[in-house]
Design a binder for these strands. Sequence first.
DNA 1: ATTAATGTTCAACAAAATTCGAACAATAGA
DNA 2: TCTATTGTTCGAATTTTGTTGAACATTAAT
Lengths: 109, 109
Amino acid sequence: MQDIFHPDIKDISLTNVFSALSDPMRLRIVVQLGSMDEEYTCAELQPDGITKSTISHHFKVLRESGIIRTRLEGTRRFVSLRKQDLEARFPGLLTMIFALQSSNEDKGE
Amino acid sequence: MQDIFHPDIKDISLTNVFSALSDPMRLRIVVQLGSMDEEYTCAELQPDGITKSTISHHFKVLRESGIIRTRLEGTRRFVSLRKQDLEARFPGLLTMIFALQSSNEDKGE
DNA sequence: ATTAATGTTCAACAAAATTCGAACAATAGA
DNA sequence: TCTATTGTTCGAATTTTGTTGAACATTAAT
């Protein structure tokens, strides 16, 4: 039932990462995950007015593309950015994304 | 008829750029455009087995997302990377992409 | 054993993206 | 004025993506 598949570093593809980050909601999640070195539950990152199944779908996309890691603990799932892996695979990508956090980018436009 | 719309630098959005680059064919075009400081005609960048209408569509996506610039000359159109604009807007993005050119990324996987 | 909490999965739908061929537009050249 | 060249645009078909509610699974707590 629970696959919780995480691709190996070498299998993280740039096109898949770009595809995952092309959705405003997912990009915002990544920015939020990067803003603090902590884990979040899925519910904590769920925007208002968005259903559980929707956010679950986005986490799956982010996880299968190699951007986040999911850890089970009881009934909850903690997600975190694969910072080191992404930096090793695509140096500078996260840095560039976080730099835009201060400007006016990640709100879908 | 001919719009040839190019978004202003400030209107280039990261999600749109990621979306444009999430397609393997378009990413390959960008890599090829970046490998030389030259302009290409659309036909020169057309992969084997791909129709004109398809490649025309991809150039439109790249242009409207702010990644390339199109210049008319006679019946041909020369396309080039908006290197400076992209570097100003998303510092390090192109550098990161071109670094992968040497590795084994940009072939769809 | 119930009940609650946290997410996933499934079926369904709507919207968007990809691809193609045919038709068209604009220019260059004979 | 024809004709060739280069590329766009317009449907249409197919595929992918985003979203939701209902049902389910798993664990925790009572």
